[in-house]
Write a protein that binds this DNA or RNA. Sequence first.
DNA 1: ACATTTTTCGAAAACGATTAAGAAAGATAT
DNA 2: ATATCTTTCTTAATCGTTTTCGAAAAATGT
Lengths: 339, 339
Amino acid sequence: MISMKELAQHCGVSVATVSKALNDQSDIGESTKIRVKQAAEKLGYFPNAAARSLKTNRSYNIGVLFVDEANSGLTHEYFAAVLEGFKVEAEKQGYDITFINGQIGKKKVSYYEHCKYRNVDGVVIACVKFDNPEVVELLNGDIPVVTIDHINENCSSVLSDNVKGIESLMEYVYEKGHRKIAYIHGQASTTVTKARLTSFYRFLESRELSVPDDYVLEADYLDVSQAMACTSELLDRKDPPTCILYPDDTALIGGLNEIRRRNLRVPDDISIAGYDGSRLSQILNPRLTTIRQATSAIGMQAAKKLISTIDKPKTTFTEQIIVEGELITGESVGNANIS
Amino acid sequence: MISMKELAQHCGVSVATVSKALNDQSDIGESTKIRVKQAAEKLGYFPNAAARSLKTNRSYNIGVLFVDEANSGLTHEYFAAVLEGFKVEAEKQGYDITFINGQIGKKKVSYYEHCKYRNVDGVVIACVKFDNPEVVELLNGDIPVVTIDHINENCSSVLSDNVKGIESLMEYVYEKGHRKIAYIHGQASTTVTKARLTSFYRFLESRELSVPDDYVLEADYLDVSQAMACTSELLDRKDPPTCILYPDDTALIGGLNEIRRRNLRVPDDISIAGYDGSRLSQILNPRLTTIRQATSAIGMQAAKKLISTIDKPKTTFTEQIIVEGELITGESVGNANIS
DNA sequence: ACATTTTTCGAAAACGATTAAGAAAGATAT
DNA sequence: ATATCTTTCTTAATCGTTTTCGAAAAATGT
């Protein structure tokens, strides 16, 4: 509210001196520095973000690009949790968060232009179609970027450890005696699904196992009815699986409903496992066996990496950061009666 | 990227003229206006937000204050959905969204100071403890504010119609023949709970009904185990209710688990109803009877109201906007065998 | 044709900060 | 004592806009 000029007058020095004092610059006397700082404290001075941003080209503002194709946006449980983790860490480091979109006033612009318009210091991208030309423009632009759950050459990314996730899930299921394991996976086009699927097959390979081709089905993430249909298909087989893995905890509900419709019990008649470790998974009965993704850790790592590349571009590596999840052994996977 | 100065040079006019042309000011010739506009289009000019904000004290930026006490933040399903609705409408009107927090750089400041620092044009407040001194400071400050699900004298607010919500839920349950209706409600201290509870009692009154005092219990919103305990208490009575209303769909799961633990069936043995109309409620089996709160409408109304008070403070009323929800008749409330 | 009004444009100040360059004062060296 | 170097501060330019005010040009009136 009080400007630097007023603060300077109050202290009987020039604005330049005030600026230097507040920013701990070198060419300033120790005594005046503390005098100015105390006055600033007393008068409740704080800088004007716009003026500073205009002059320094640093906004201490980070753009968030979250454009779910299903328009679920912030209601996407997983990404909302990641964003929350990101937000907490960024704010701790003095950065604010602004959503990036495709408009300036009433005019349509690209995401990149919007970033330039707001002069964000960096951008975190998640939950978008990465082949969108506007996203590509942003990835190849001159603004520091970190992506989440997607690998890109030009920038760092933070990834949930889907390989280890599926591996430990399979390990657990295998130890419970299951051999006839079906996997309903999400959209095959995504980085996430590719990792999980490869891990699935690699595990089978390592145990010299194999499953029928049509034990492996595709159903969109979070889509209950598709998961239900796939489950039905699996249960209709003459050799149905003893355990089914789902794309995520929500989609799993579709399977669970179908299972219950057939008067089968979980886990006595059939075992199921989800992915995500959502809130839902732990309040259901039976509690789900699932992989809890470390959402806040993912968000935090992304923020740390992004801010690091902003603050110290010369000494920050471009890298992929893998964040491990955690197996939650609920009650939805039982012992397989090995017959 | 290209500045006004360059654009002016390119057009052979002064920056003042460019500014006037782009902002559709009066003292500018029609022909030069379109010439400038076309050049701006061609060269991909867009304004610098910081410079504009500095000069005009308008940032076209709206602050969002979302400080859940449980630190669930963005993972709060209801408020995340409201925020998403808010975001969509605000962006449509050319405003961006920034989160408000308690820091500038590494220094702790109040929410109000943070708003001033970022020069936001307005603030939407939701999901906070409204008796927090910092929130009060913001409410009484000179920045336009809209609150969500909380009434305050100084500003407009948008409220979910909890009165009508409970009323239509009760109406439905009553028509199904239920008379022994228990209500597990959320924290009694909140505006939301007060409205619902009053509506509950008023409905009973209107039908000249009454229920035992301890049919009405308190359990925190979203708290599964508390809801479970309350449910257990209710079912242990010698005259248990035939229908139980829960604080929300999530808490209801606690009740559902307890009910199933006792080998009771929903809705045959007991009826239950939730609140929120969450995603969860419609994928469960049986589908829940619940009140869907019109989250995106609430967010949209809040954005419209806030932007209106920003743009036209003189002609915008301070008012409470009530947004109706919608009864979702699932399958969790059955006919009561009136004995 | 001259005065007056209206329209259209530009010069310059301002918003609140940062920063390069220079000036004044004090300290050190010769 | 003079020259040189440091330290500490100020002046002034700058970032990219908007906006006031005055000037020039065009339109209007008489």
